[in-house]
């Protein structure tokens, strides 16, 4: 079994504490996973990967329209956080949201049918890829305006504190979004009022075609809360164990009433920004290197085999199972009827 005290497959995330920034926290050591945890992480990440591949395929066939932002490569971030959270904790994110919904246990059929704009979709076909919600599963969307979800997530944290329900809102945004002004207005209020919010910056190195270095005057985004006294740390977002450990720590901090916490997940998206991005701003080698050396799913797979916790055949069986679930979702999403025309005028006001 691979020892997990130090990630050898990391993305180069600097996970050790440094003196810069008063609020800098050393990331906790990577938690060892037991067999069940490894298997769980494997299945969950694989479901997201296969789901997204299928979505890409359906887009190419014209079943999905508009914008469609795939999460392939970033699966460990949302799955690691899911493994750390407790029931009742909320998630809110931007438009790259399919993975978050699957991790929040939303039915793949409902998600896929929303992508195809059918009546069985989570928003009855009216929201689309970027705008999906589930009150039941504490998923607050799915937002198309870069940065807007951060203030909303802060408000959900406010409501948690108001109700004293002990829940934490995991508020996701990208490295590009990290420059929007309302994020800093939110940071200030969240720190001022000690709101239970984890700001999860999914740093996949690019905001559309602009690298972090070309968009941000300082690139250690975990330190963006320093002037508000918000602690932050960088996490190897390609290693699901590192994500879970950091998330547990941050969740505990928030639940103890100490205020918000920033987790900068160093990750990578394999596909273009959306389906229509030719991704000329990075080299093929760069993408290939991430795929072969840091793939979040391959890491777990290697550990499972290494520890003799699963055989190739067993992993194949899992894959088959996952593919079947995705195929079922895709089938539903292609055959479910479009919304009834009368739906045009519903859900505008109560």
């Amino acid at each position: 079994m691979a020892t997990a005290t130090k990630s050898t497959t990391g993305t180069g995330a600097r996970t050790t504490g440094r003196s810069r920034g008063a609020a800098k926290k050393a990331a906790p050591a990577i938690a060892e996973f037991d067999k069940d945890q490894e298997l769980h992480a494997y299945k969950e990440m694989l479901l997201i990967r296969r789901f997204e591949e299928k979505a890409g395929q359906l887009y190419g066939m014209g079943y999905i329209g508009g914008f469609c932002h795939l999460y392939i490569g970033q699966e460990a971030v949302v799955v690691g956080m899911q493994m750390a959270k407790k029931d009742g904790d909320q998630m809110i994110t931007a438009y790259r949201d399919h993975g978050h919904m699957l991790a929040m246990d939303l039915d793949p059929k409902g998600v896929m049918a929303e992508l195809t704009g059918r009546r069985g979709g989570l928003s009855k076909g009216k929201g689309g890829s970027m705008h999906m919600f589930s009150k039941e599963k504490h998923f607050y969307g799915g937002h198309g305006i870069v940065g807007a979800q951060v203030s909303l997530g802060t408000g959900i944290g406010f409501a948690n504190k108001y109700r004293e329900n002990g829940n934490v809102c995991m508020t996701f945004f990208g490295d590009g979004a990290a420059n929007q002004g309302q994020i800093y207005e939110s940071f200030n209020m969240a720190a001022l009022w000690k709101l239970p919010v984890i700001y999860v910056i999914e740093n996949n190195r690019y905001g559309m075609g602009t690298s972090v270095e070309r968009a941000s005057s300082t690139t250690d985004l975990s330190q963006r809360g320093v002037s508000f006294g918000i602690p932050g740390e960088q996490v190897d977002g390609m290693d699901v164990r590192a994500v879970m450990a950091a998330s547990e720590n941050a969740l505990e901090y928030c639940r103890a009433g100490k205020g918000p916490f920033i987790l900068e997940m160093i990750t990578y998206r394999y596909r273009g920004h959306s389906m229509s991005d030719p991704a000329k701003y990075r080299s093929k080698d760069e993408v290939q290197k991430m795929r072969t050396e840091h793939d979040p799913i391959e890491q777990v797979r290697a550990r499972l085999l290494d520890a003799n916790w699963a055989t190739e055949d067993e992993l194949k069986a899992i894959d088959k199972d996952v593919r079947a679930r995705v195929a079922e979702a895709a089938e539903f999403a292609q055959t479910d009827p479009e919304p009834d025309p009368s739906e045009l005028y519903t859900d505008i006001l109560l």
Binding site: E114, K126, G127, G128, E338, P339, E343, L344, Y345, I348
Partner: peptide, 14 residues
């Protein structure tokens, strides 16, 4: 129409 723009192809057309 006096509605937010829906995503579904048929509703968008309407």
């Amino acid at each position: 129409k006096d509605v937010p723009m829906p995503y579904a192809a048929n509703l968008e057309k309407l």
